[in-house]
């Protein structure tokens, strides 16, 4: 009967998939059907159907490879897990209706049909959800790594002067990373002054300020000076309102002023050169 069902699905694949697509389109709120081109939808739907058939007919290995490829694709297309599960349920419903209409099911084989469907659909659901979540985990992990990589690098600007632009929210884990990058960068580039640019930090609360003060203290210990640049008006307001003491710090509103001060600290200045 196993082969029979597979054969039946293969034979009527086009019609089953068409019905299935119509049923899925009722899930109007899913973005997939709204933003993807008809061709992509068509291909994906076909692939899903093939995958379902593969799970019945092909060896475990071939199926696994196919399953993984498919999972990567649907994660990229933004299918939600809910949508995937609905797709499977709808598929079984469509299949049942169609087989029933065509008179394939009768009182004798309905029990073994149900059994096969259960033994087939449950592991299928599991394997698809598992593959889906694996791909998803990997995606999240890669994004986290990417975020960490871009989160803090020290850029040598002039001899003895380096800059570290901070972008985004600073939590404790990132603060530790920032501090490490900052200190290793200072030693590596032999910076005497570091400009910490917080233009891209949306909120400076007590905790963020605390991390910045610690970083500046650590910079002083390794033998350099830390300046805070890019203080926007609203940041200045919150810092004072929260009673955070940044008096030991050299702070400036813009990078330009910061660079001028840093040059002065290292006994240098920018001078204009007259045209000859």
């Amino acid at each position: 009967m196993n082969k029979q069902i597979a054969g039946y699905i293969n034979e009527h694949l086009d019609e089953i998939l068409e019905r299935w697509t119509i049923k899925m389109e009722d899930e109007k709120d899913d973005r997939f059907f709204q933003i993807m081109s008809e061709k992509v939808i068509d291909n994906t739907v076909r692939e899903f159907g093939e995958l379902v058939v593969f799970s019945l007919t092909e060896s475990e290995e071939v199926y696994r490879v196919k399953l993984n490829d498919f999972s990567v694709k649907i994660v990229r297309y933004g299918w939600s897990v809910t949508f995937v599960l609905k797709a499977l349920t709808n598929f079984t419903h469509v299949l049942y209706d169609k087989m029933n209409e065509d008179g394939y099911l009768n009182e004798q084989n309905i029990i073994s049909y149900t059994e096969i469907m259960t033994n087939w659909i449950t592991p299928l659901t599991h394997s698809i959800v598992e593959a889906y979540s694996n791909v998803w985990d990997r995606t999240v992990h890669l994004q986290k790594m990417a975020l960490q990589e871009l989160s803090a690098s020290l850029i040598p600007m002039f001899d003895k002067i380096s800059v570290m632009p901070l972008v985004g929210t600073i939590d404790t884990e990132r603060a530790k990373l920032i501090m490490e990058n900052l200190l290793h960068g200072v030693v590596k580039h032999r910076a005497e002054v570091v400009l910490l640019d917080i233009t891209g930090v949306p909120v400076v609360d007590t905790m963020v300020a605390h991390h910045i003060i610690q970083a500046a203290d650590a910079v002083r210990l390794v033998g350099a000076k830390c300046m805070l640049v890019g203080i926007r008006p609203e940041i200045a307001q919150t810092i004072v309102a929260l009673g955070i003491n940044l008096n030991d710090f050299t702070t400036t509103s813009t990078m330009q002023r910061g660079v001028e001060k840093a040059l002065a600290l290292t006994n240098r200045a920018i001078v204009e050169v007259k045209d000859k």
């Binding site: 501090m179 030693v187 610690q214 203290d217 650590a218 210990l221 390794v222 033998g223």
Partner: peptide, 19 residues
């Protein structure tokens, strides 16, 4: 004082020693 390593500076700060 010269040559304090980054790792040493970080642990000192976390210990609460600011020197």
């Amino acid at each position: 004082i010269t040559g304090i390593q980054p790792a040493v500076a970080i642990t000192l700060i976390e210990l609460g020693i600011r020197l």
